[in-house]
Write a protein that binds this DNA or RNA. Structure first.
Lengths: 204, 204
DNA sequence: CGGGCCGCATGACATCTGTCATACGGCACT
DNA sequence: AGTGCCGTATGACAGATGTCATGCGGCCCG
């Protein structure tokens, strides 16, 4: 029989990361050979340890798990990619798939699915929650332009139009125009709702 | 030597919960005797299993880990309480302590601290991050009145003044006054920032 | 009993925000 | 060459939001 599956674990919360490592450690055929707590340490660690599967949390400092996935996919295409996230946002699933992910798991799925997903992706299968896949397809693509997203992101923490304009090197009127179109595209009433909805959909 | 320490684990994300259980399962002297995924199932499970220590995540459906802690503290005062959270918000620490928690851990602390905290609280010790404790003391108490908190919470998802007034059975002017005083107390410029800051401090 | 804070309210005012029309250059697709 | 979208900008306008002064009744504390 073949040797153990070598896994890289990327997750910023140490306690969760080490707990997941403990969980995977219980499996005979899986070995966690590297752990990192930042997105921007993923590639280096993957190179250093010759991993079979990378398990990537999305929310991480440095860069997101999705960005890390895209990078790995480009640099080490033979590494299988499992994206793990707290939030089952359809937009996340879409981005993860575009980044070359082989599996997409949400953290409130049963723990058994984790080891299972690792084995499946190594066998060439793709693993995604059918409900989430349906939601991602139903919702359609992100309607926001890059600029609209930038403005929304910057507006998220309560900045005023003048501050947004300064931060993005735009005129105040332009900022208002972008916010206005974003608000209309998302069918909401103000910037706060727009930020909330865009976040929920994973469009931000 | 004494028998194993019986632990109840409350955490809504199955994968994290089972991973933490796996982690604790590696310790010879600790046994996870019950797992729940909702705050409002904690008391019942604790009663059913005669637990020594309850490990409570804060963010849970049903009721928060802090509310569950307060309930356990009242109903089963001999059970030791460890509160676990993603966010190291000083206000959370304060509330947890007021609810009778014996330990307060953030999830980005090393995993080893978890088992250690379980043993320590059982030995009658209290476990809190000194940095966080300092922050909680430095920041002072929540300056917001109950009404101000209500209005901020309701305003968080982008409701308009008219909607807030209707939802809270207040006049529109009163809503604006509350928001205005909250904005001043938090030393910010608008409601969105006020919500953000209040959240960060755990005052919401 | 008086002072102070809270909850609640109103009115006036200044500023911020959202909408709309309009404009121009660039780029892509037909 | 024409159409359409994007990025950028302006000006005008209506409505939402934030500030301030002021008022009243209730409650607690000294």
């Amino acid at each position: 029989m073949s040797s153990t599956i070598k896994v890289l674990l990327a997750e910023d919360q140490s306690m969760v990361r080490e707990a997941l490592a403990a969980l995977l450690g219980l499996e005979e055929d899986i070995e966690v050979v590297a752990q990192v707590g930042r997105g921007d340490e993923v590639l280096e660690a993957a190179r250093a340890h010759d991993v079979d599967v990378a398990l990537l949390d999305i929310e991480m400092p440095g860069c997101t798990g999705i960005e890390a996935a895209a990078l790995l996919h480009r640099e080490l295409p033979e590494v299988k990619l499992v994206v793990l996230t707290t939030f089952g946002r359809p937009g996340y699933l879409r981005s993860a798939m575009e980044a070359g992910a082989d599996a997409f798991l949400v953290k409130d799925a049963p723990a058994a699915q984790l080891a299972e997903a690792v084995r499946k992706v190594l066998a060439g299968e793709r693993v995604i929650d059918p409900t989430l896949a349906a939601a991602a397809l139903a919702e359609g693509a992100n309607p926001l332009t890059e600029r609209e997203r930038q403005v929304l992101r910057a507006a998220a923490d309560g900045r005023t139009n003048a501050e947004l304009a300064k931060a993005l090197h735009l005129s105040q009127g332009t900022v208002r125009n972008y916010l206005s179109t974003a608000i209309q595209k998302l069918a909401v009433r103000n910037r706060t709702e727009a930020v909330r909805i865009a976040r929920e959909k994973g469009w931000l």
